[in-house]
Design a binder for these strands. Sequence first.
DNA 1: TAGATTGTTAATCGATTAACAATC
DNA 2: TAGATTGTTAATCGATTAACAATC
Lengths: 214, 214
Amino acid sequence: MPRFRVPEITVERLSIYLRALKKFPEEKVLSSQELAELVGTTDAQVRKDITYFGEFGIPGQGYHVGKLKEEITHILALDREWELALVGVGKLGTALLAYPGFKKKEFRIRAIFDNDPKKIGIRIEGLIVRSVEKISETLSRYGIKIGIITTPAEAAQDVADRLVRGGVKGILNFAPVRIIVPEKVKLKNVDLSMELETLSYFLSEGTSTGSHNF
Amino acid sequence: MPRFRVPEITVERLSIYLRALKKFPEEKVLSSQELAELVGTTDAQVRKDITYFGEFGIPGQGYHVGKLKEEITHILALDREWELALVGVGKLGTALLAYPGFKKKEFRIRAIFDNDPKKIGIRIEGLIVRSVEKISETLSRYGIKIGIITTPAEAAQDVADRLVRGGVKGILNFAPVRIIVPEKVKLKNVDLSMELETLSYFLSEGTSTGSHNF
DNA sequence: TAGATTGTTAATCGATTAACAATC
DNA sequence: TAGATTGTTAATCGATTAACAATC
């Protein structure tokens, strides 16, 4: 529905706006200024982001919470159910399985995989751990379109290849490595080492031992 | 040391370059082109990122792996040890405590906190869980400058305030909420819901039920 | 109507890319 | 020297911000 190409950062902010909106009653009307303050951006940014998709506001008034929530929910395709596969049932994978976000209806983990024979067959959060060998056939069978990688770095590329063969269209990668996927597949990386190292840089800035300003 | 203001995205890419470099022998020389391919960017980008900080390459040859690794390590301040505090010893917090990145010397979790009386006092990965009440005094005492928030959304702002009072200069926030910190404190968000919702958007693009292209 | 705030265009800002002289 | 690739400047691209007519 957008009139033009939408920047990814705009889509990310829509998700943030939606979360903020959920704290208000449906009937409330919020101005772009108020919404901006809630999420730490500017009123112009809010209006620009929203108008990529349509005219959902009331001039002179603002945005009706219920209406805007509904529109963003539809834009982000959260008015449907997505089934997910998770590969790598280590500490992080298990933690994500219990994540409240996966108890909601929009996203539901449907299949889980590991390459450790000791784990295959056991049940976690109601799901049986399958062998990574079964990834593509299982995903094809279930029509799963989103995969989450929580394996060690070494296994991530092979797992990604299997997910792609199984027909996924999106991958959320937590392994600390840059994986390569076909252009058609949307890849998002969550890179803890990178985040920490970036913090390290900014913290060392402006200290006597490593100023980074001129 | 940089001559000009450095974009955050450049710092993030330096972290990625560094990880790629670690797979090569010290004596090897890589061109910006080769390095770019390894991490999925362009040769011009690699050179631009690096030259914010100095001239580390050899015209006609490329970049000496050992030398470049050393320089980036120094730029990112990874040639020192950072002590961290982690707040919220639930599934995700516990998973992060076991994360291999925290077994290395650059980042070490030194103190952990929770608000659940049943958890306070127990030992996890060699650390005793303290009460969130003790955050600021403990951080001041130890001189901890980085905090990780793995609490539920409701607790995150209070925890952030305590971390700031304790003197942290950087926060890595995993709670699904936008927290507010003083300008001097560097905040990085890892937002799983947002990542999934962005994937949802891109996957619904170009499908019959919700095309987002014109 | 007067006041407020949207939607949108134009101006600005900042990051990426292209191109090439310098140099190993 | 000839070939290759850096470091850097200028051109391009894209996102943010400012400003204001339209409109509730």
